[in-house]
């Protein structure tokens, strides 16, 4: 059982969190003009890094969505920080 740190609630057990994907996977702008390849990359292609990963997580009890750095090798998790201008 890992301990993750919500920017609002502090350290909580991992079962309270929901994975939201890799951070920085920005939604392509441009609507219908986005190429199928770019859209598919946004939907499906992930880096799955060995080592430091920047990820989006949601704390499902307070619904805060935040960015967290996690080491996929050592399992170390840095405290999360809020999205947008709050962060």
């Amino acid at each position: 059982m890992q301990i993750f740190s919500c920017p609002f609630c502090g350290p909580r057990p991992e079962t309270e969190f929901h994975f939201g994907g890799e951070a920085g996977n920005d939604r392509p702008g441009g609507g219908a003009s986005v190429s199928a390849a770019d859209w598919a990359a946004y939907l499906h292609l992930r880096d799955n890094p060995k080592g430091t990963a920047r990820e989006i997580w949601m704390h499902t009890t307070c619904l805060e969505v935040f960015v967290m750095e996690r080491d996929t090798l050592t399992m170390r998790a840095q405290p999360g920080h809020a999205l947008g201008s709050h962060g």
Partner: peptide, 15 residues
């Protein structure tokens, strides 16, 4: 649905 709404609110409309 609640989680999805919150995720998009915070990601796309944070301000």
């Amino acid at each position: 649905v609640h989680a999805m709404l919150e995720e998009w609110r915070q990601d796309r409309y944070p301000d």
